[in-house]
């Protein structure tokens, strides 16, 4: 199962590369730099998926107290942090030629960075509480608070300052996006989702082994 997911994800990533570099046209304004989008956008979508899973699994754990839920929350949280990091790095690389700086305190960049910090805190908490059961409980509470905090962070940072170009995928007015680019994005998004599923299944079995070894 895990192995199949791995191969599927690899295949998807290759297809994503081909789509991103071969099939999709060069952006008229930004040039080749724009192709970073094929990593950047799927990364953040995957991170959101991961953190949504953390929320669900945290609630599930508090209600049932079953280790499976905690395992899921822990694994999804770690992978979410990795993908958020990837989002920040790819955004930075894109920002240098486009905005002329590695980092600007742009609204969406900033709220992604805050998201990153909240969930790094979540992982640190897990590491710092020795007792397994307590660590799971506390992490679940932080996982819930972190997730419900996302919209609050979003609006606060948005009102604080905004430079970012409007979100093209999720914004209500739907800015024009050419079909080849949309298709390339879609393929990459599917590839990243497969990659996430692969990581998750790997991390889950690793966590199970950790439990057997230490717990």
């Amino acid at each position: 199962m895990t192995r199949w997911l791995g191969w599927l994800a690899a295949l998807g990533l290759v297809a994503g590369l081909v789509m991103g570099f071969g099939y999709a046209p060069k952006d008229a304004v930004q040039g080749n730099v724009q192709r970073i989008m094929y990593v950047h956008v799927p990364s953040i979508l995957t991170a959101y998926l991961a953190f949504a899973l953390v929320l669900i699994a945290s609630v599930g754990f508090l209600f049932t107290r079953r280790t499976e839920w905690d395992r899921l929350a822990h694994s999804a949280g770690e992978i979410g942090v990795v993908f958020t990091g990837l989002t920040l790095v790819s955004g930075s690389i894109w920002g240098k030629p486009t905005w002329g700086t590695w980092w600007t305190w742009d609204a969406r960049l900033t709220s992604t960075a805050i998201l990153f910090l909240i969930y790094v805190g979540y992982l640190l908490l897990r590491g710092m509480v020795e007792d397994w059961e307590r660590s799971a409980r506390y992490a679940a509470v932080v996982g819930i608070l972190g997730a419900v905090n996302v919209p609050i962070v979003h609006f606060s940072v948005l009102w604080w300052r905004t430079l970012h170009q409007p979100a093209t995928i999720l914004s209500p007015e739907r800015a024009p996006i050419s079909p080849p680019i949309a298709l390339a994005l879609l393929v990459n998004w599917i590839a990243f989702s497969l990659l996430f599923a692969y990581f998750l299944s790997k991390r889950l079995s690793l966590r199970r082994l950790e439990e057997e070894a230490y717990a």
Binding site: L117, G121, G146, S156
Partner: peptide
């Protein structure tokens, strides 16, 4: 160590506002 690490990022909206 842990208390500020957890509290500060969550409090960003409150600080900004």
């Amino acid at each position: 160590l842990l208390f500020p690490l957890l509290l500060l990022p969550v409090q960003v909206p409150v600080l900004l506002g």
